[in-house]
Write a protein that binds this DNA or RNA. Structure first.
Ligand SMILES: [Zn+2]
Ligand SMILES: [Zn+2]
Ligand SMILES: [Zn+2]
Ligand SMILES: [Zn+2]
Lengths: 171, 171
DNA sequence: TCATGATTGTTACTTTATAACATAGCTCTC
DNA sequence: GAGAGCTATGTTATAAAGTAACAATCATGA
């Protein structure tokens, strides 16, 4: 977002999908897995996974719900007393650049990335009841979009495909 | 957004597409057409197309770029001296409910709706050079999405499909 | 060690959005 | 036409999201 930094695409990681769907993530390893994976990604890319960045990622992974800036700030403050908006947004920018989180445009919020193989061809399904966000690959969908874009002579740079509705568990 | 009001789906209107692509809309009838169409829609639905609502829609239609809240407020003030944030957002909520504008989630901004037949199965193409937003129908795309949703047992309520990139004219 | 760049601290501000209550205007009925 | 009820707007205040600029600190390699 700030535009200054070198944009590093992280390599393939271990994480395979969203096994854990509990809102609170009690007794579930997916957060630890994500942190561990992030650590590896940063090491391999030669960028620093500092304590603040780690804490922010941990907070985001405390649920599969998208986290809003204000909540994030409230929750980081007990751990980083000096935290202010800039603290958060800088960490978020970093995590976005490394592809470790996604921004949910239609919520102004952030979720941990659970892309299979980190392909980032994702479709976000946002439940209006439980507020969980499911990230799904969408190769077939992307083919349809590619055709549309060709017809429109439009060159894609980034995309947001977000569906709001009722998830299977809440139905 | 406020949730209280009756949600009225407007009937089919005359507008057929985005004929006008000029950033400034000089000597182009599409704004007047949109206003006229809006008037008809409101009459048919029995809702009031008040001066403020009309002015807001006119300002939004001054270009094919998405209009941000702050700009909108600056531009409505000369015409409605008492305008404050609530003035704008109430008019925007009304226009959204009537399907006369769209919210561009990834920009936190608003554009006039130019849906063919007002089907609202739209894909938004946002040019990062000229900042114009093209609204395209996407029946085929929606079929692919429907399949994905079925696999995911997800019931759609609303969607945002927004692509950022370089448009044909800017390429 | 010291120069360099990256990261964080700090302050101030802008932009986006909503809540709550008061006032004014429209419409329908009596 | 008066008044009731509803809709729309005025007004004030505040929450939430996001950015800019500069200072201080930390990490790292020459
Ligand atoms: Zn991802
Ligand atoms: Zn749900
Ligand atoms: Zn539309
Ligand atoms: Zn363009």
């Amino acid at each position: 977002m700030t535009g200054g930094g070198l944009r590093v695409m992280p390599p393939k990681a271990e994480m395979t999908g969203s096994e854990c769907v509990s809102p609170t993530h009690v007794h579930c390893g997916c957060r630890e897995k994500a942190i561990h994976s992030a650590e590896q990604v940063c090491n391999q890319c030669g960028v620093r996974f500092t304590p603040i960045r780690r804490e922010v990622l941990k907070i985001i992974w405390e649920s599969h719900r998208a986290v809003k800036a204000h909540d994030l700030l409230d929750r980081i403050k007990p751990k980083v007393g000096t935290a202010k908006p800039a603290t958060d947004y800088r960490a978020l920018d970093f995590l976005l650049e490394q592809g470790l989180i996604h921004r949910v445009e239609s919520l102004n919020a952030f979720i941990g990335c659970s892309c299979s193989e980190r392909q980032h061809e994702q479709l976000l399904l946002i439940c209006i009841r439980c507020h969980e966000v499911e990230e799904r690959p969408c190769e077939r969908l992307m083919e349809a979009i590619a055709k549309e874009l060709e017809q429109a002579s439009f060159t894609m740079q980034r995309k947001a495909i977000e569906i709001h509705g009722i998830c299977g568990r809440c139905a």
